[in-house]
Structure formats: C-alpha cells, structure tokens
Simulated assay, not measured.
Amino acid sequence: MVLGWLLLLVSFLFPKVTGIKDCVFCELTDSTQCPGIHMRCGDDEDCFTGHGVAQGMGPIINKGCVHSTSCGREEPVSYMGLTYSLTTTCCAGHLCNGVAGPAKGAASLVLCLLLLLQRWL
C-alpha cells in the first residue's frame, strides 16, 4: 500500500518531460524576485529564464515559454527606455524555470520519509 502511495507521489512530483508542460511566466523586471504565474507551453517550446544586462545598469530577468530554436540566444530587448542584452537559458522539465530550492528539497524529504515508512511497515 505504501509503495502505491509512493508511486503516486512520484508521478505528481516528477511528471513526464516530453510534450506539453507548464512553466513559470513573469514579465521583464529588475527585481531579484520573479515569483511569476504558471503558463502552459506548446510541444515545441521549452521553459526559459532570460537574464539581461546593460552597461552601468543592474540586471533584468524574465521567464516563460520559448521555441526550442531560441534557446541560448542573446537578443536586444527594451526595458524602461534602455536596451538590454537578454540571454535565454532553457530547461526541459515541468516548472523547471521556477524557484528550485525549497520545493525540490521538500520533495526529496517526503520521498525519503516514505521509503523509511515502507521499511517499518
């Protein structure tokens, strides 16, 4: 029974990487925080995080979905009247461009606890 719950939990925490996926979206911002909202991407799209720089200015970021052919490109974007050089970094997993730290750590902790429970039962 515990093994069944473990498999169900794993299927929700680590969905398939192929096909349609959800990514985090947020507009261009100069904030270090970009909580964003979830958006659905197409089959030929990957999640991305864009990092932009302009001489003498602080960095900007944005997140969303982009066609796979645009991954790794550096393109000019306009933000607050200035032109920034924005580099797109892509990832292929479900919500992979979101906040990585606590969520993945919590998932690992839950899996470890379930495995320990299975040994005791």
Rank of each mutant, 00 (worst) to 15 (best):
M1W: 10
V2H: 04
L3I: 06
L3T: 09
G4N: 09
G4M: 06
L7H: 11
L7V: 04
L8Y: 09
L8A: 08
V10W: 11
S11D: 10
S11P: 02
F12E: 06
L13Q: 10
L13G: 08
F14N: 13
P15D: 09
P15Y: 11
K16Y: 10
T18K: 10
G19W: 05
K21W: 14
C23T: 08
V24E: 13
V24D: 14
E27Y: 08
E27H: 04
L28Y: 07
L28M: 05
T29E: 11
D30T: 02
D30G: 01
S31Q: 07
T32E: 12
T32Q: 12
Q33D: 04
C34Y: 01
P35F: 01
P35R: 00
P35A: 00
P35G: 00
P35Q: 00
P35C: 03
G36A: 05
I37S: 11
M39I: 14
C41Q: 03
C41S: 03
D43H: 07
D44H: 03
D44S: 06
D46I: 11
C47G: 10
G50K: 10
H51W: 15
H51T: 14
G52Y: 06
Q55W: 14
Q55D: 15
G56V: 02
M57T: 15
P59I: 05
P59R: 10
P59T: 09
I60S: 05
C65L: 04
C65E: 10
V66R: 14
H67L: 02
H67S: 00
T69Q: 09
T69L: 10
G72V: 15
G72W: 13
G72S: 11
E74M: 02
E75P: 02
V77W: 06
V77M: 11
S78Y: 13
Y79D: 00
Y79C: 03
G81H: 03
G81Q: 02
L82W: 12
Y84Q: 08
Y84V: 06
T87M: 07
T88Q: 12
T89P: 14
C91Q: 13
C91D: 11
G93M: 11
L95C: 05
C96P: 04
C96V: 05
N97M: 06
G98T: 04
G98Y: 05
V99Y: 15
V99K: 15
A100W: 08
G101S: 07
G105H: 12
A106P: 11
A107R: 14
S108F: 07
L111E: 08
L113N: 01
L114S: 03
L115D: 03
L116M: 01
L116C: 02
L117S: 06
R119V: 00
W120L: 02
L121V: 08
